[in-house]
Design a binder for these strands. Structure first.
Length: 702
RNA sequence: GGCGGGUUAGCUCAGUUGGUUAGAGCAGCGGAAUCAUAAUCCGUUUGUCCGGGGUUCAAAUCCCUGACCCGCUACCA
């Protein structure tokens, strides 16, 4: 048909992970997309797999008392079997411990090691490197990424390590990358707003990428040209997309499978793919992938799905509960590309009942039941269409029927015609809607032509009944065929009820003018789910309307010392006495106040603010300061308070949370009024007096 | 703080280059029908298209401005 090729990938999943709805979504999306391409006549290569190197794997294996390889062999199966259950038809399942992959990575690394830039600089260089290393995340964090001295992702301790490592001169490709994303291939990163994010990120100088890990720390990995080192897991993992198809060619055209047409990924690994992977390929002088599609996350009842909160939706559980195909349909239908989508039983059931049970399944049942009157045999050719007009002896009374008939046939044709565009743009949600919409036309056609009235009539009526049911069957055949990529098993069943196989039907993906059907009765295709057993509407979750300010903890503090921030022109680093403890706080006061104006003074500290590292120095809180004339800031002054005194708003109960975000605090508008600080008109006080601010009325305090 | 995106029916969202009475699905309400899976079909929402200003013969659509929400990023503190 189209004689094109299509290579699609999912990320390779970390072998220690338990398959969840996020993995399932990407994989189902890849499967549906590749089945659509096959339906359109393309030759497809669909790759998925598991990422098996790294410290966590090594540790997990040790814990279980098995070799890392044995551990991977076993855990990798969990993904394979999950995909089998979800009817995923991949061409290849790559494992980064595959011999071919390991050798490929080594070969490519060798190549990198020997390559030089036009400037004569080598692509790879080694450097003594010191940094905070997190064992659990297997990477270094810069000082300012740390939270409370711990790694910000897993919140585990980090250690300061100095070691030699190898770096990839990623920075040399920055301009080329920007040009590629912006000009050469504007649809490289999809959706568009993600592209803009990447371009925004690229406005700052790109740092070179550390691509090695010393074996002394980690030996479960791929050895680099320097035998004392293994490859950084991302380098290892990203290369899977190319290694899996190294030397492979498409049969139809004979071109190489690489480059990929689509890398399907979650939005959390966009930087890695758009920047690391792309520049790496540039360095290797390999063709670049054509599209990177970053989809959103699944929210479970409006909370981000996460392992820690335990609201992981297991794809296997969904399969058992509602059936594989309904689950696949829901995933593809519900997520608008790029945005987050919400998963809940209520939404699922509503969607399933409304689209699949009521429209599609019930439509088939109606036709099958009526076909009994004709012993399930339908014959038709365009010629006996004129019987419409004869029916009822008046063309006027046949008008609604004609209209419904034309609508049915036109929709059928339109849906076929529009499919390639939908698939190309990955507008699958739209496509599904229009496919289901075809069954809406079918139901309307049945309603208007009321074939059940004809069932007990004579020859002429039977003839007409035959024609109507044939039209319906033909429309359904097209609908089922188009829905097949999403719901292969159910659509096989449905097509079988029409006396067709998918393979035969896809060869005739067109509204036919004549032919015959040999139908057979089947049990309901998508049984309706009783909503009584399932909570229907999501309660909009009443959030109790406590004042945001009550969760804030303010404390009077005394400034002990003031230093210039070593690395930030606008910041001071303060040591403050917060009553029994000394805290380090960064303050953006350097342009406003001298050291002398600060030392020994009292101030107000937002004490339960989540600590953040600012340009390398941890700040354990934030000093309150008021805007005053001329854009100057002045410190809020808790009158005659002692260090450690709690500051509260008059008449407002204070229930500080252990930790709040800056955003939470920003929801609390503090303002000066009459030389004192107020929150929503309430005076801020310590036990010993008000909090003063040298600022005009209405000045913002923060 | 910077950049980007958003705000359209009770809910989830479409609305192409500005152009007739602003749409779909779901939910609700009323009716019809009885072939079918308590399914279907028809009708039904007086929507300040977030507010304010502007350009235009004409703005949901373009410009300015304000509010709120979200994403990325930061010498946020």
């Amino acid at each position: 048909m189209s004689n094109k090729t299509f290579y699609v990938t999912t990320p390779i999943y970390y072998v220690n992970d338990v398959p969840h709805i996020g993995h399932a979504y990407t994989t189902v999306l890849a499967d549906v997309l590749s089945r659509y391409h096959k339906l359109l006549g393309d030759e497809v290569f669909f790759l998925t797999g598991t990422d098996e190197h790294g410290q966590k794997v090594q540790q997990a294996a040790e814990k279980r008392g098995v070799t890392p390889q044995a551990h991977c062999d076993e855990y990798s199966e969990r993904f394979k079997s999950a995909w089998k259950d979800l009817n995923i038809d991949f061409n290849h399942f790559i494992r980064t411990t595959d011999k071919a992959h390991v050798e490929y990575v080594q070969r490519k690394m060798e190549e990198l090691w020997n390559k030089k830039l036009p400037s004569g600089e080598s692509l790879i260089y080694d450097k003594e490197y010191s940094g905070w290393y997190s064992t659990s995340e297997e990477r270094f964090f810069s000082e300012d990424e740390l939270v409370d001295g711990k790694d910000p992702i897993s919140n585990r301790a980090v250690e300061w390590i100095t070691e030699k490592n190898y770096f990839f001169r990623m920075s040399a490709f920055q301009e080329k990358l920007i040009h590629y994303i912006e000009i050469e291939k504007p649809d490289f990163i999809l959706p568009d707003f993600r592209k803009n994010e990447v371009l925004g990120f690229l406005k700052q100088p790109l740092r070179d990428l550390c691509i090695s890990r010393p074996k002394s720390r980690l030996n479960w990995g791929i050895t680099l040209p320097d035998p004392d080192y293994v490859a950084y897991v991302w380098v290892d993992a990203l290369l899977n997309y190319a290694s899996a198809v190294d030397g492979k060619k498409f049969k139809t055209i004979g071109n190489n499978v690489w480059p990929a047409d689509f890398h399907l990924i979650g939005k959390d690994i966009l930087t890695t793919h758009a920047i690391y992977w792309t520049t790496l390929l540039m360095a290797l002088e390999m063709p670049l992938p054509k599209h990177i599609l970053a989809h959103g996350w699944w929210m479970i009842d409006n909370a981000r799905m996460s392992k820690t909160t335990g609201n992981v939706v297991s794809p296997l559980a969904m399969k058992d509960k509602y059936g594989v195909d309904a689950f696949r349909f829901f995933l593809i239908r519900e997520m608008t590309m790029g945005y987050d989508a919400t998963f809940s039983d209520a939404i699922f059931v509503t969607r399933l009942n409304a689209s699949l049970a009521n429209d599609v399944g019930n439509g088939l049942s109606r036709v099958l039941k009526l076909a009994e009157f004709l012993e399930f045999k339908l014959d038709y050719s365009q010629d006996n269409f004129s019987e419409y007009v004869r029916f009822g002896n008046s063309s006027a009374s046949a008008q609604p029927q004609l209209f419904a008939y034309e609508s049915l046939i036109n929709t059928s044709r339109a849906v076929i015609r529009e499919l390639p565009g939908m698939v190309e743009k990955v507008f699958l949600s739209f496509a599904l809607d229009s496919h289901v919409g075809l069954f809406g036309d079918l139901n309307r056609y049945l309603e208007v032509s009321a074939p059940w009235k004809l069932a007990k009539g004579g020859e002429v009526e039977k003839r007409l009944l035959n024609n109507i049911l044939w039209h319906c069957s033909e429309a359904m055949r097209i609908g089922f065929t188009l829905l097949h990529p999403v719901m292969p098993k159910k659509m096989d069943e449905a097509l079988a009820a029409l006396g067709w196989t998918f393979e035969e039907s896809q060869k005739q993906l067109v509204w036919r003018d004549s032919g015959s059907f040999s139908l057979k009765s089947i049990s309901p295709l998508f049984p309706r789910i009783d909503t009584k057993t399932i909570p229907v509407a999501d309660a909009p979750g009443k959030t109790e309307s406590t004042d945001p300010f009550s969760s804030v903890e303010l404390r009077a503090v005394k400034i002990l010392s003031v230093e210039d921030h070593p690395n930030a022109e606008a910041l001071y680093v303060l040591q403050v006495d917060a009553g029994g403890e000394t805290r380090t706080v960064c303050a953006g006061l350097r342009k406003h106040l001298t050291k002398e104006e600060l030392i020994g003074k009292m101030g107000v500290l937002v004490a339960n603010l989540k600590p953040a590292s600012l340009r390398g120095v941890m700040s354990q809180g934030m000093m309150l300061a008021a805007d005053s004339e001329g854009g100057k800031l002045s410190l809020a002054n808790p009158e005659s308070a002692q260090p450690g005194d709690a500051i509260t708003a008059e008449g407002l109960e204070s229930h500080p949370k252990p930790q709040i975000n800056l955003k939470d605090f920003e929801k609390c508008p503090l303002a000066a009024k009459g030389g004192k600080v107020h929150y929503k008109g309430k005076e801020l006080r310590s036990p010993h007096g008000a909090v003063l601010a040298q600022a005009p009325d209405g000045a913002v305090v923060k």
